[in-house]
Design a protein around this nucleic acid. Structure first.
Length: 456
RNA sequence: GGAAGGAUGGCCGAACCGGUAAGGCGCUCGUUUGCUAAGCGAGUUUGGGGCAUUGCUCCAUUGUGGGUUCAAAUCCCACUCCUUCCGCCA
């Protein structure tokens, strides 16, 4: 969510930024609702103040009434002093009248408040609904471009693009031939876009997961998290998946649970509604989770192989930082993802996203792609984003500055490190031998009982 | 799934047959004093509005959302979470 103050102060600038994304937002409607809201607050609070005053009077008067009544009762049991009794009675009558008057005021004001309150809540919920649909704004350093065709690929790094003296096969041929991927039975179980990994295939994927978790933990200092794979819908709002991407989410039919499309959703909300100490930052987490996506928006794309399924595994990095350090942290994140590609001996390249391809929540984003020699394309295996305070504002994640003062929103960053199926594709296809066997990258061998080659 | 109890500020904890949140600890600032420190005083949730321009003021905030009432931490309803017991269970 954007800061409403920013929209209030620089609406034209905000509109211009959103145009750079190739998106739009009802900024004028938002401004209008915001103005209405503040006007209502003004009158409502004045009424509340008045009711508070009347209420306090009533409280005081009730007290004096009580003491007067007691005094009257006491004197009534005695004789004489009639004058005094009359005076007390008169005082009591005055107090009664005053209470009645104050109650009337309070009652009338209360009715007005109830009505204004209802109006205000209506407006606030409308305002929030609109705000939840406004995308994050691009960072000043993001190159402008209307769509992904303008993205800026950097020079490939890592291992050289492999050349073969035989015809390289894609993984959808190699997998079944080696008995490590079973498409038919996957489809039998769950339909299109599902597959089974078997034998060395299943073990290879598990080895990669374990390697990546260990590497980020030991070499990069991330704390490993095992989160729930299904979380409440409010967490999806916090991570900026809802309301916009509702159609891509699997949900439970009875309870308010939704299945993670990425670990980012769980990790974002780990510190939801918390005020962290600045000294706690940055927080660096890494989590392995399966990811579940309907892929409605990509219906018909990449239906062959394991490139895009309804279920896939991913190791995800996540950072909570101060606003001052989040862009350094983004570079770090990219470096950490790249280090995995290096270690796995994969040809990879960094791609800088232009404004038109930033997505909904990122202020700046890099993708990491690895080369797969069978399908002969660059596969996106990582996406590293700085969301600045966009998610933090939705999930209410703040920190208290060392200097004291009011809490501020943290910046949040997420980066895949990495997505499993495409890494599997690259490893299988790039490392294939003439006899159909697959050579295992060195760093993975300890996780596979020192196996150096999946036999043909 | 059944039963009972509970949720109050950074922490502990009172008020709970309705009148507008005690006290303590911690922390911050000030002050005093002849000794590692203590005493005294003040301040100390969060969000929002207004006016100012670095402060004043108002409103809201006792798990969440409703209801009753002139008025709700307090009474009523629903929900969430926690604890204990029972049932089931890897």
């Amino acid at each position: 969510m954007l800061d409403i103050n920013l929209i209030r102060e620089k609406p034209d600038w905000v509109i211009k930024q959103i145009e750079k994304l190739g998106d739009s937002a009802p900024i004028n409607e938002i401004l209008d609702l915001d103005a209405q809201r503040r006007e209502l607050i003004l009158t409502e609070e004045e009424l509340r103040r008045r009711r508070n005053v009347a209420s306090k009077d009533i409280g005081r008067l009730m007290g004096t009434k009580k003491t007067l009544q007691k005094e009257i009762e006491r004197q009534a049991n005695e004789t004489a002093v009639d004058d005094n009794l009359n005076a007390l009675q008169a005082e009591l009558n005055d107090a009664n009248a005053a209470v009645d008057a104050a109650m009337k005021i309070s009652s009338n004001v209360g009715e007005e408040i109830t009505k204004l309150d209802e109006d205000r809540k209506n407006i606030e919920s409308k305002l929030r609904d609109l705000m939840l649909w406004v995308p994050n704004l691009p960072h000043a350093s993001v190159p402008e471009g209307i769509d992904d065709s303008f993205n800026v690929p950097y020079e490939p790094k890592g291992r050289e693009i492999p050349q073969f003296d035989f015809e390289a096969k894609p993984h959808w041929d190699l997998g079944p031939e080696l008995g490590i991927i079973d498409f038919e039975r996957g489809v039998k179980l769950s339909g299109t876009r599902f597959y089974l990994l078997k034998g060395w295939g299943a073990r290879l994927q598990r080895a990669i997961i374990q390697f990546m978790l260990d590497f980020h933990g030991k070499e990069h200092g991330y704390e490993e998290i095992y989160p729930p794979f299904m979380v409440r819908s409010e967490m999806f709002v916090g991570a900026a998946q809802l309301p916009k991407f509702a159609e891509n989410i699997y949900r439970d039919a009875e309870e308010d649970f939704m299945w993670l499309g990425t670990a980012e959703i769980a990790l974002t909300n780990v510190h939801r509604d918390e005020i962290l100490a600045e000294g706690d930052l940055p927080l660096n987490y890494v989590a392995y989770t399966p990811c579940f996506r309907r892929e409605k928006m990509s219906a018909g794309r990449d239906v062959r192989g394991i490139k895009r399924g309804h279920q896939f595994d991913k190791v995800e990095m996540y950072k909570f930082t101060t606003p001052e350090t989040s862009y350094e942290a983004l570079e770090e994140l990219v470096q950490h993802s790249s280090n995995i590609c290096e270690a796995l001996e994969l040809p990879y390249r960094l791609v800088e996203m232009v404004t038109g391809d930033l997505g909904f929540a990122a202020a700046k984003k890099y993708d990491l792609e690895v080369w797969a020699a069978g399908v002969e394309e660059w596969l996106e295996v990582s996406s590293c984003s700085n969301c600045e305070s966009f998610q933090a504002r939705r999930a209410n994640i703040r920190y208290r500055p060392n200097s004291g003062g009011r809490p501020r929103f943290v910046h949040t960053l997420n980066g895949s490190g990495l997505a499993l199926p495409r890494v599997m594709i690259a490893i299988i296809e790039n490392n294939q031998k003439a006899d159909g066997s697959i050579q295992i990258p060195k760093v993975l061998r300890p996780y596979l009982g020192n196996l150096d080659r999946i036999p043909a």
